[in-house]
Design a protein around this nucleic acid. Structure first.
Lengths: 219, 219
DNA sequence: CTAAAAATTTAGACTAGTCTAAATTTGAGA
DNA sequence: TCTCAAATTTAGACTAGTCTAAATTTTTAG
């Protein structure tokens, strides 16, 4: 089996490879894990020895098939636990991250299978992120960023990119959540802000920082 | 906060102090934790530095008030998770120990409070052991060992002492579980075995090994 | 193309937790 | 009460993971 630390590195490499390029740099990982580049180098060597990453000195890393599978499984566990915390234990969506970071390392396939069953096989977590299947497949989501939406169409919020407490609390305050429906009333080139109107609700001006952290689907 | 390892030592010292004497020896701990006496000595020094145990070289240890509180809290978490695993996720009572050993170290008071609420404030775990209250109080149970019972009274099984897979599976096989009702039909001095009859069920001969690992209450 | 900056790796050290083997202390029985 | 076996502790070593500081490689800008 793999240590918490190893799992965290694999998870972060997976995340960065997903959003950035295929090859991930030492500094990116160090920054994401709030650790030092030298520590990252040490760990990359170890992961390479175990055939979990492809690593070439000074050239960054990518996950091997094996490393990918472990990383995705950690993500699966993290997201299933988040569903449990919100749906079953009534946590708010801004309170679950730290606890899920711990729970994701519990080792028991039986536990995760049964949790999945108990939760009725959820496909997304409380932030709208897809829950990987047992076989490692990650359901694809054809959402777009709210910032890329056009005016006078009805969109449904599908996912939030930034899972930080402050962002989620901001959304709570303005009654925006997963499945909220809204239209873009106006877009302002000046600062890339926009006015959106929640269907049956209030209007609100969203900064570019906000609209680039919310995914939506055309209704 | 305290490490998994520290919590495990405190938990084991608590357990041993409960069943044995107040003062616990290095070897007892080493044996319980499947580690070496020298490792135990090292850890005892550290725990003593942190004022979690009273430790005098060559004299054994006892928990301080502070150590006791932490130990009992770990036990509380362990037992609440066991209830969750059996009641909610439908694990069998012989499958929960290893997973609960991991879950008991998750750090989040909110999580345990909400789990407790979700489970409707259970007072005993799936093996009949009392679940410590949040304040550290452990509900007292005036059960006796089945081996100490007398013939022709009706008893109700309240707790099993040995939580090993093999013992629990043995009880399953013979349809003995928490809350089973039975009478002692006969006791045999020869080997301290006894014949018991399950109310509305079959009769069975139990060895002394079995009857000294089952607690019962007079109905 | 080259010098400086940025990124990365190496060297060496530290902590937590563990181990083996040797030394010390305890305590039980003659 | 003395001796010796058992229990315990100490000394020193090892691993995983981390760090700082120095060295090296890569990249960038002129």
């Amino acid at each position: 089996m793999f240590s918490h630390s190893e799992e965290n590195y694999l998870k972060v490499i997976h995340k960065l490879a997903f959003s950035n390029s295929k090859n991930v740099s030492t500094n990116l990982i160090a920054n994401e894990l709030q650790t030092k580049a030298s520590s990252v180098t040490d760990m990359l060597k170890k992961l390479a020895d175990k055939k979990l990453v492809n690593y070439e000195k000074y050239r960054g890393v990518s996950l091997t098939k094996k490393g990918e599978l472990i990383a995705v499984n950690v993500v699966r566990k993290h997201r299933l636990w988040e569903v449990f915390l919100v749906d079953t234990l009534k946590f708010n969506w801004d309170e679950v991250h730290d606890v899920a970071e711990q729970l994701e390392h519990i080792k028991s396939d039986q536990l995760i299978d049964r949790l999945d069953t108990f939760l009725n096989y959820p496909t997304i977590d409380p932030h709208g992120d897809p829950i990987p299947k047992k076989n490692g497949e990650i359901p694809f989501n054809n959402s777009i960023l709210l910032s890329e939406g056009i005016t006078n169409k009805i969109y449904k919020v599908s996912c939030v990119k930034d899972n930080s407490k402050s962002f989620l609390q901001f959304l709570d305050k303005h009654e925006i959540t997963i499945n909220s429906e809204l239209t873009i009333v106006d877009k302002f080139d000046f600062d890339d802000s926009m006015t959106v109107k929640l269907i049956g609700g209030h209007s609100i001006i969203l900064s570019n920082k906000v609209s680039t952290n919310v995914f939506v689907n055309l209704k």
